Simulated scan of single mutants.
Amino acid sequence: MTPAAELAIEGLSKSFDQEGTALHVLSDISFHTKPGEFMSIIGPSGCGKSTLLKIVAGLDLQHQGKVLLSGKPVDRPSQDKGFIFQEHRLFPWLTVEKNIAADLPLKDPVVRARVDEMIRLVRLTGFEKAYPKQLSGGMSQRVAIARTLLRNPQVLLLDEPFGALDAFTRNHMQEALLDIWRENRTTMLLVTHDIDEAVFLSNRIVVMDAKPGRIKTILPIDLPYPRNRIGTSFQELRTQVLKALEKEASPAADTWDI
C-alpha cells in the first residue's frame, strides 16, 4: 500500500469571473491533515466545499495559495489523489471485478490478486461477476471506492459519496468506509452536509462559512471507534458542530442535514 500522505493547504483563495465582476468563492483557506487522518469538511451550500475538493484533486489550478501533498505542489490530476463522487460512475457493461480493474489487465496475477483484495475489503465477495444493474446503490458505491483504492492513492477525496442513499444504506456505508479506512489507513478528506456523518467518521471537522467560503473553526472529534450515534458524548459533539454552523449564518443561504 502507498503510505498515507500529509495534505497541506496554505492561504488558498478562489474567484470566478462573473460578467466582469470577481465572485469570491474561497478566502484564505489553511489547514493540514496528518498522515492517515480522516477529516471532514462541512458547511452551508455555496461555501465552496466541492470547489475546494476539486482544487485538492488537481482538477482546478486557477487559484491563489498552495496545495501540497506529501510536500509536493498539486499541479495536475494524478492517481495519488483518488476522487469519489456522489454518483458511482461505473461502466454498466462491465462486471464488478472488471469495473474495479478498469484499464488494468485482470489476467495479470498481480492485478488479479489486488482486485480480489479490494473486493474482500469492500465486502463484495460473491458479487465479482455481477453487473452494476444487479447491485444496490451502496454496493455500486463500494465498487467505485474499490476501483479508486486499487490505484493506491495517497489521499482519498470524497464529495458527498452517500448523499443519494437512503438513511439506512447511508449508515451502513459509513460503517463500511470506516472499516476500509481502519484497514487501509489512507488519508481521507470528506465533503458532507450531514452533521451526524461528519461526527461519526472524522478525527477532525473543518466547519466553513459562505460568501466567500472560509474556515470558521476546526473541531477535534475525540471519540473512540466504534462510535455510538445515540451516546451522550456523540450528541454533545453533534450540538457543538451545529452551533458552529449556526453562528453568524445566513438562513436564506444555509442548508445542512441535522
Rank of each mutant, 00 (worst) to 15 (best):
P77Q: 08
F168H: 13
F91G: 08
R214D: 06
E175P: 14
I180N: 07
I119A: 08
T169P: 02
V96E: 01
F85L: 02
G138R: 06
G65E: 08
D80R: 13
T21H: 14
L245N: 04
K49F: 01
L245T: 00
I180K: 08
D103A: 11
A4I: 05
L201Q: 07
L149H: 14
S40R: 06
P92E: 00
L124Y: 12
D103E: 06
L157P: 02
D209I: 13
T95V: 02
N99R: 03
H193Y: 07
T33S: 15
G11Y: 08
L90E: 06
A210P: 08
F91P: 06
L12E: 10
P77T: 06
L135D: 01
A4F: 09
F38A: 02
T33F: 09
L68H: 04
P226I: 07
D28Q: 07
L94M: 00
R112M: 13
K72Q: 10
L165F: 04
K49N: 08
G36L: 12
K129R: 09
E246K: 09
G213A: 03
M118C: 12
Y225N: 10
R238P: 02
V122C: 14
D222F: 14
D254Y: 13
E128W: 11
E236C: 05
I215F: 14
K133H: 05
K14P: 04
N184Q: 15
K66R: 11
P220D: 13
P153A: 14
I195L: 06
Y225K: 13
M208F: 02
Q235T: 08
P212G: 03
D254S: 13
S70G: 12
P3W: 08
K54W: 02
T95W: 03
A164L: 05
Q18N: 11
M208K: 11
K247D: 04
L237V: 00
D116A: 15
E37P: 13
A198V: 07
M1I: 10
A102W: 13
I180G: 09
K216A: 14
L177E: 09
I195H: 07
E37A: 06
S45E: 03
V206A: 11
A198D: 09
A144H: 12
V74Q: 02
F16V: 01
A130F: 10
S45I: 00
Y131R: 10
V25M: 04
P132V: 00
L190H: 05
R151Q: 01
A144W: 00
I215M: 00
D196W: 00
P132Q: 01
I258Q: 11
S45P: 03
T186G: 10
L68W: 01
V207H: 06
A57D: 00
A252I: 03
V206T: 11
L156E: 10
K133E: 06
D209A: 15
L158T: 01
A252N: 08
T192R: 04
V115G: 06
L201W: 12
T192N: 04
